[in-house]
């Protein structure tokens, strides 16, 4: 949009389009950004640091030579590559299903004036506080033939209560009744309103929620751990990562694999850092593609009508 000329009483700096306020904001944001960037940077530098340098410790501010041995070790361990695939499939399926079901329900329930929606809302929110526990859960999944089954990592979390609440409130606030009524007069029915007005209007929020739910699914391993447990081919990456961080047997497996590849026995911490980088990489790569959806005002056109 075109900038309006600044009123006269503003200062020189303001007319230049930059002032102390901006400087303070920028400094604050950049400082916090650096603070947040550093831990992952530390992991990255430590994970490619040649061994002699690594054991000296230090703050890992910059590379002192690059040695990709840990990554070679990790990717020569078959369990890693397979689990990446499992995680990708599981994350896509579970996220798509979850976002679809949760947002559809949230939209409908946001219309509290319609009979029954308040009751349904209360029924959903109640679940935020109570859960049955492991044994009844196991029996349920067993009777649904979900134990030991890939789908146990996809189906149970479909309705996400927290994001249901966030989206429901979002719909009830940002999609005004007037807008819908106007659309209704234009000849749209509820179906039309949902697909042609509400959904485009909410792209930013849906993108954000999709990212959140995708990250939850990417990081989840509990259902694998409890309800599958021993199916190597179904291990999600988050589980492999968790084992790498806590379970000595996988660590030893990779370390000994390294020894057989002719590397010196790697220090566990450096190997963990490399694993972390591998786990974070997909999200870091995908993220910039999603970011524009929830940082730019995507709803400009729709609201201005």
């Amino acid at each position: 949009m075109k900038k309006k000329p600044a009123p006269l009483r503003r200062s020189m700096f303001m007319r230049l389009g930059f002032n102390f306020y901006d400087v303070a904001v920028t400094i604050f944001c950049v400082a916090f950004g650096l603070l947040c960037f550093y831990p992952l940077w530390y992991c990255l530098v430590a994970s490619v640091m040649p061994y002699e340098e690594y054991v000296k410790g230090g703050l890992m501010l910059w590379f002192k030579g690059i040695d990709l041995q840990y990554y070679i070790q990790i990717f020569s361990t078959k369990v890693y590559t397979n689990s990446l695939l499992v995680s990708a499939v599981k994350t896509v399926l579970a996220t798509a299903l979850s976002v679809l079901v949760t947002s559809a329900m949230a939209y409908a329930v946001s219309k509290v004036h319609i009979r029954g929606m308040k009751l349904i809302n209360a029924l959903v929110v109640f679940n935020l506080f109570f859960a049955g526990g492991l044994i009844p859960q196991y029996m349920l999944y067993k009777s649904l033939h979900l134990t030991g089954n890939f789908w146990v990592m996809v189906l149970p979390g479909t309705l996400n209560i927290s994001y249901f609440i966030i989206m429901r409130n979002y719909f009830s606030f940002s999609v005004s009744r007037e807008l819908e009524d106007a659309a209704m007069i234009d000849g749209c029915n509820e179906v039309g309103i949902f697909f042609r007005i509400v959904m485009p209007l909410s792209r930013g929020m849906i993108a954000a929620v999709t990212l959140f739910i995708a990250v939850i699914n990417w990081n989840d391993y509990y259902n694998y751990m409890m309800f599958i447990g021993n199916k190597t081919k179904l291990q999600p990456f988050a589980w492999v990562l968790h084992r790498m961080l806590t379970d000595k047997s996988l660590m030893n497996q990779v370390r000994n694999g390294a020894a057989s590849l002719g590397f010196t026995l790697p220090p566990p911490m450096a190997l963990r850092m490399a694993t972390i980088i591998c786990a974070t990489l997909p999200i870091v790569i995908i993220y910039p593609f999603i970011q524009p959806y929830f940082t730019k005002g995507m709803t400009l056109g729709a609201v201005k009508e």
Partner: peptide, 21 residues
């Protein structure tokens, strides 16, 4: 058929035992 685990293994075994699996 082998089955194993470290984290959560005891919980899973006990749950499986309690639920007949």
């Amino acid at each position: 058929e082998y089955d194993t685990g470290t984290d959560g293994f005891d919980d899973r075994m006990q749950t499986e035992l309690f639920t007949g699996s």
